[in-house]
Design a binder for these strands. Structure first.
Lengths: 229, 229
DNA sequence: TAGTGGTCTAGACCACTAC
DNA sequence: TAGTGGTCTAGACCACTAC
């Protein structure tokens, strides 16, 4: 069945519509539920895109992103895509236990937390949630966040990030995330948690990012660790 | 429903068995298919493990692996786990178009390709497939491959890897991979393609690795790119 | 209103495990 | 043989789209 569907996908051009599920299941001789599991897999691989009420379409090929300190804004520009943001949430809070540990602050210290939807050419690519100590960014307001966060830190606050440490997990998109990213629930995704540091060693911010895996790859350059023996 | 099940998972210790699906679905007041989707999600997150014919169990917490040139063998030792391998496939081939491009060889040149299941404390963690030019590894035989591949290259063949480049994709485990890794189909996974290079710039090998994402995280240290302006 | 994908049900049967 | 998870079916109904 997968082979039959893949033939249709390969034959079609980007954006072409596949036959409706009820028709495909009849053609393949399986129930619709079973057919849908095969389509789930293809959607997870980024080969097809499903739009409720409209149909199932041949997908665009995926992007490749370098695993580096480059900002989303900068990276998308280099890929020739127009980056944009939509702030989904912006609030001033007092650090709870987890946030305090990550930012190396006492519990209860004021922090700013914001969540942004990141888009490339208007297509939702990821959701980034950032926590930062409030005293690092006095006067920060929601409208300031439509561009590069790292550039804003450098230009307005003279805060320069030297390095970061990331933890990367593969994830499967849940309900809410799937809706926000306009992607099928169950699609593969990256979950990247990053801490950034100034030259002084001070923690600057902590981010939790969810990126669509059907549209995205990461690359990394690896060097051997210096050997201790 | 998810909350009810999570309460059971949190209450239980590692290895505890949850109630059978038919019972859980009755308790939650949903059909078994619907309950299974919730369990699929928890399995994908690495919170539970399902064993056909035996039951559903509270899972072990996941490992963290540094994104680096360290070999699987070396890394597992540092994590205090016993690494092992099982060679699933070993053959001498003539490079097809894709392999030739990756290894920068003419099409038809002799290569060696092998696939190994990697285990930590006997638990399947990933499947690694390696391609290498045959003339780099004269006399290589299947039984040579039970330890570190990089160490073998260095010791027996005096081939020293200087750096690597990896492309990382989140994936969802397919049928065959799921069986090999003893994990549910639909679980999150990493798909990592790596090219390695000698100091001379020559390509050494090309690997495609699938790692379980429910047992594994990657970490990376990031430095800003040197700016061109 | 007709057509699409999204979710759910009740039940059947299979594969595997433990006895 | 009884109990477990794994797969599949036929059909219902919902949410959304395009007209």
């Amino acid at each position: 069945m997968r082979t039959q569907i893949l033939a249709l996908v390969s034959a079609g051009a980007e954006g072409d519509r596949l036959p409706p599920e009820r028709e495909l299941s009849a053609v393949c001789g399986v129930s619709r539920m079973t057919l849908r599991r095969a389509l789930d897999e293809l959607a997870a691989e980024g080969r097809i895109v499903r739009r409720q009420g409209r149909g199932t379409f041949v997908a665009r090929p995926r992007m490749v992103r370098q695993l580096s300190m480059k900002s989303f804004t900068e990276e998308m520009r280099q890929l020739g895509r127009a980056p944009s943001s939509r702030v989904l949430d912006f609030r001033r809070l007092r650090a709870n236990g987890l946030q305090a540990r990550q930012l190396r602050l006492p519990v209860g210290d004021p922090i700013v937390r914001f969540t942004r939807l990141r888009l490339a050419d208007g297509e939702p690519i990821g959701v980034e949630t950032t926590c930062v100590a409030a005293d690092l960014v006095p006067g920060l307001k929601e409208p300031d966040l439509d561009g590069s966060w790292y550039e804003l830190l450098a230009r307005r606050y003279s805060v320069h990030i030297l390095r970061g440490q990331s933890m990367i997990e593969p994830a499967v998109l849940g309900d809410r995330e799937g809706r926000t990213l306009e992607t099928a629930v169950g699609s593969p995704a990256f979950r990247i948690q990053t801490s950034t540091f100034a030259a002084s060693g001070r923690v600057i911010d902590f981010e939790v990012d969810i990126y669509r895996g059907d549209r995205y790859s990461l690359t990394a350059d690896l060097r051997p660790e210096p050997r201790a023996h």
